[in-house]
């Protein structure tokens, strides 16, 4: 099967988790919010069961996000103690479009995990939200680098 024949990856997301992610993004305005997604991981078909909000430790949280290693490790241990796997991560674009930015590409480091993005477009808490997700496909022959592959978000 060639890449073009392969169907797009999927990310199943319960509607309550989807709505909670949007609510988190709205509450966080003007800053970006971020966190970890737990559930069942597969490189082509993952399913979210929980979201784990984490502090945004970036120096410029209105334009960047970063999860510090210590809270991240604690979150991942909690997630795994509940029998979940690391499905991926989420963050918001309070004003940006619902697509990964150049900074998102430069910062991506978890191969095949989902990077879910909540965009509020115009930065108003009451604005309409767009939720999309991508898989990070690392380039094998390079230490770093790769590309985001759009995946189908399936609300259930």
């Amino acid at each position: 099967m060639t890449t073009t024949e392969r169907s797009a990856p999927t990310l199943a997301c319960p509607k309550p988790v989807h709505d909670a992610l949007v609510a988190d993004a709205r509450r966080g305005v003007p800053d970006e919010v971020c966190g970890v997604l737990g559930g069942t991981f597969d490189p082509q078909a993952s399913r979210i069961t929980s979201r784990y909000p984490t502090p945004n430790a970036a120096d410029d949280p209105e334009r960047r996000y970063r999860i510090d290693p210590e809270p991240l490790l604690e979150t991942l241990e909690t997630l795994e103690s509940r029998g979940e796997s690391i499905v991926g991560f989420y963050h918001s674009h309070p004003r940006g479009p619902p697509t990964p930015s150049r900074t998102d590409v430069d910062g991506a480091a978890w191969p095949d995990r989902s990077y879910l993005l909540v965009s509020l477009e115009d930065g108003r808490p009451a604005a309409g939200a767009t939720v999309r997700s991508w898989r990070w496909r690392a380039t094998p022959e390079r230490e770093t680098g790769g590309r985001f592959e759009r995946e189908r978000l399936v609300l259930e």
Partner: peptide, 24 residues
């Protein structure tokens, strides 16, 4: 459970490596 500088000499038998999570 605490970050250490990458250029420090290895003095322990157990370490954890975490991929970074950051972007914009």
């Amino acid at each position: 459970g605490r970050p250490v500088p990458e250029d420090a000499p290895v003095e322990v038998e157990q370490i954890t490596v975490l991929r970074l999570i950051k972007g914009g």
